[in-house]
Nucleic acid binder design. Sequence first.
DNA 1: AAAAATAGATTACAGGTGTAGTCTTAATTT
DNA 2: AAATTAAGACTACACCTGTAATCTATTTTT
Lengths: 124, 124
Amino acid sequence: MIELSKAEFDVLDALWINYPATASQIIERLSDDKKWHEKTIKTLLGRLVKKGALTFEKDGRQYIYTPCMERADYTLKESKNFIERFFSGRIAPLVSGFAKSEQLSQQDINELKKVIDDWEKNQK
Amino acid sequence: MIELSKAEFDVLDALWINYPATASQIIERLSDDKKWHEKTIKTLLGRLVKKGALTFEKDGRQYIYTPCMERADYTLKESKNFIERFFSGRIAPLVSGFAKSEQLSQQDINELKKVIDDWEKNQK
DNA sequence: AAAAATAGATTACAGGTGTAGTCTTAATTT
DNA sequence: AAATTAAGACTACACCTGTAATCTATTTTT
């Protein structure tokens, strides 16, 4: 599995919003949340390419970047990893921890019910 | 929040199994899963103390370690962090991602239902 | 055409991390 | 008592990370 640092993920996440995209577009998108220097983002783009998380094509002297994987796939792998590390691979204890510490809203509960519902329908 | 590296967490996790405990006991517990040198674990214990995740009392020339926080508290904070980063703070998309990629067993579903049930009882 | 801006490439550098090795001192074994 | 072992302290070192600055080659602007 490709391992990304937090900062690298944030850059990739800005690309996932809409791609392919140029470095300047990515920098633009990140400018709201992060106060990163343009050079910092370029460095991170370079590292992402090196790690195989991005590819690019040249367009004149610009690069047009495309992610090499989908966000859902990446987050699924990270989630499995996380749940394995902290909860021995079981998801309920995570949710239960949230419930116990009052992190869950009625909306969360409704959404969770729907997920369960859909899962059960799918079993038939 | 105290930030622990993966290796540091694994050492702390071995202590959470049962504490207080000496370095040798922790090393013993870790010997099944990890092939770490004893010195490595000692280094990690030192770093954990420095970060404020552990304290110790002296017993002769040994230290007896105790965690400074509970596992559930630590994992809750990590979980919130994780879900914030990858799912904008909402838990259902994580579970949904699991469901879609067939990561959920009937047991997981049963456990999740119970969590929801308990939550609802608690609301009344 | 000369100057300035801009793209990416290369270099920088401190602090964290994994993974020990060496040093010092006290306890245990012979 | 001398030698060995074992506990923790200190040191090491390469790679990762966050966060850019500088260099080089084009474009764009004046």
